[in-house]
Amino acid sequence: MNHGGNIYQFARQVGCLPDQVLDFSANINPEQAVSADNLPVTALGPYADPDYPLLKAALTSRYPYPDGVDIEVFNGASAAIFAVLRWLQPQDVVLYTPLYGEYAQIAKQLGCTVHTVDRFTDVGTAVPKNSTVIFVNPATPDGQLYEMQTLLGHWRQAGCTVLVDESFLDFCPAESVSAYLGEDDKLLLVKSLSKFYGCAGIRIGFVLAATPVIRQLRRLEPAWKLSSFDMAYMQQALANTAFIDQTRQQTRQRRELLAQTLADSGLFTHIYPSQANFLLAELAADGDGQQLQARLATARILIRVCANFTGLTNRHVRFAVKDELAIAQLAKSLQGGVS
């Protein structure tokens, strides 16, 4: 699965309800900015304003950008990425791996030639001239945070169009590339809101880019991409500014607890340092991710085996940062090794 396991299928397999699954496979904040008891009341008619002015105002307040830059919203980050590549129609797309497979799937659907760079070994390697670069920061599945200014200069010299995915950047107090958008019309930023705000069922993502670029993107977009409920929910979530620092602090503490839990299990030879809401770990030489996944399933725990990430193997597994109770249950289930 591109975004973690299918908890519905998993629940059927282990004989429980979906809400009884401890889902460590999907990198979604276990906390929400809007309580289920305070869901917005939304009118079922008339049609929403197709320009989304209230949502865009809320997004602009939360994610400010310089003059000469504009924003466009989409039905999730995946839709945004597809729309950008459909508009660009690039011949060459450069992907920095390890990386989840959705980018390559979209690029291949559009007939692009996909080139890969192993960012673990040589992130600064030369890329094809005038290619389109896609880079995720912090990266997935390992959560490494990159200093972007040098990389942007490297790609600029090659004449590249650059799409930076910052869907996990909210989890750490790091600088966004949005500050550079006003001076580079070949730089675009895409972001998903579901990860940080803990609302995978609310499908909203957005693109920031130079105003002429956004105008061209909009010409290819349908009206009424978003539901009134999704917009009302996200406007309320964005208004909860206290949630930002609370989440960052909580994620950092829980990530440290999760890392210690994985280390104490004795199963892993390497736990990758992360600035995001997940940890990548490598099992010992005789370990098998599928076997560990099967054993944890008996405790209704679902994890992500990363064998389908370019450059990783069946020994690489990823754990989302969950709450303390879930981590304690994981710790108990990890004891005893891989059977």
Rank of each mutant, 00 (worst) to 15 (best):
I106W: 00
P30F: 02
V34W: 02
A11N: 00
G337R: 13
Q260P: 02
D122A: 15
A83G: 13
N27W: 03
G4Q: 09
Q329K: 15
P173L: 11
G4C: 09
F196C: 05
F196I: 11
T121V: 10
D142H: 11
E147M: 08
D185H: 10
Q91W: 01
D323K: 05
S131P: 12
G182E: 10
A43Y: 09
P50Y: 06
R203Q: 15
V73T: 14
V117E: 01
H115I: 09
A107Y: 04
L39G: 05
Q291T: 13
Q9T: 02
A242V: 06
V164W: 04
D19A: 01
D230S: 15
Q329D: 12
F243Q: 06
Y96H: 12
R252T: 10
V136E: 10
Q20M: 11
Y146M: 09
N27D: 14
C306G: 07
P64T: 12
V321G: 07
D288W: 08
R248W: 01
E256A: 13
P128S: 10
I106R: 04
L152Y: 03
L257K: 13
V321M: 07
Q290W: 07
T298H: 04
I28H: 02
Q290I: 07
L262K: 02
G266A: 10
R315D: 04
L59K: 08
V136I: 14
L187F: 04
A263D: 13
V127F: 05
F82G: 02
A79M: 12
M1P: 14
R12F: 00
A11P: 00
D19H: 06
P64K: 09
D51M: 07
T269Y: 06
T161E: 12
F268D: 07
V317I: 12
I134W: 01
L85D: 05
Q105K: 14
V213N: 03
K225F: 00
P40F: 01
A326G: 07
S178R: 12
A237E: 03
L95F: 04
L226D: 08
A320P: 02
P18N: 02
G5A: 13
S265F: 04
E175Y: 01
